[in-house]
Amino acid sequence: MNINSCETHINHALDVFVAEQGKFPIMEVVPKEEKLSTKCSYCEELAIYVVVKE
């Protein structure tokens, strides 16, 4: 499970991940080369973070 998130929705993304997976995720910064094409999973803003499984 990967969740792309903007600054506004990062707390929600972390909460959703923990609720669904039962584990704390790893939060990574979207790689520079993917920043312009990666949208937030909750809105149309560009994603800054990716929440991923360990």
Rank of each mutant, 00 (worst) to 15 (best):
M1I: 04
M1K: 08
N2P: 00
N2A: 10
I3C: 05
I3Y: 05
N4C: 13
N4T: 13
N4M: 12
S5T: 04
S5I: 03
S5Y: 01
S5H: 02
C6V: 09
E7I: 12
E7Q: 12
E7F: 03
E7S: 06
T8C: 09
T8H: 09
T8L: 12
T8I: 12
H9D: 03
H9R: 04
H9V: 09
H9M: 08
I10E: 14
I10V: 15
N11D: 13
N11V: 04
N11M: 10
N11E: 11
N11Q: 04
H12K: 14
H12W: 07
H12P: 01
H12D: 13
L14P: 00
L14D: 00
L14A: 05
D15K: 05
D15N: 08
D15Y: 01
D15W: 00
V16F: 03
V16Q: 00
V16W: 02
F17W: 02
F17E: 01
V18F: 05
V18H: 06
V18A: 11
A19D: 08
E20R: 11
E20C: 12
Q21V: 11
Q21F: 07
Q21T: 07
Q21G: 09
G22D: 02
G22Q: 01
K23F: 02
K23I: 10
F24A: 13
P25D: 02
P25E: 01
I26S: 15
I26D: 08
I26A: 15
I26R: 15
M27V: 15
E28A: 10
E28S: 10
V29S: 07
V30W: 03
V30Y: 05
P31R: 12
P31G: 06
K32H: 06
K32Q: 10
K32M: 15
K32D: 15
E33G: 00
E33T: 11
E34S: 07
E34F: 14
K35C: 14
K35E: 14
L36A: 12
L36C: 02
L36S: 14
S37G: 13
S37C: 08
S37R: 15
S37A: 05
T38L: 05
T38C: 02
K39E: 13
K39D: 14
K39W: 07
K39V: 12
C40W: 08
C40V: 11
C40N: 01
C40I: 11
S41L: 12
S41K: 08
S41E: 00
Y42N: 04
Y42M: 08
Y42F: 13
Y42I: 06
C43N: 04
C43F: 11
C43V: 11
C43P: 03
E44F: 14
E44K: 03
E44T: 13
E44N: 15
E45I: 00
E45W: 02
E45H: 09
E45C: 08
E45M: 09
E45F: 00
L46I: 06
L46E: 10
A47Q: 07
I48A: 05
I48C: 05
I48G: 01
Y49E: 01
Y49V: 06
Y49I: 05
V51Y: 00
V51I: 14
V51E: 03
V51D: 00
V52T: 14
V52C: 09
K53A: 13
K53F: 07
K53I: 07
E54S: 09
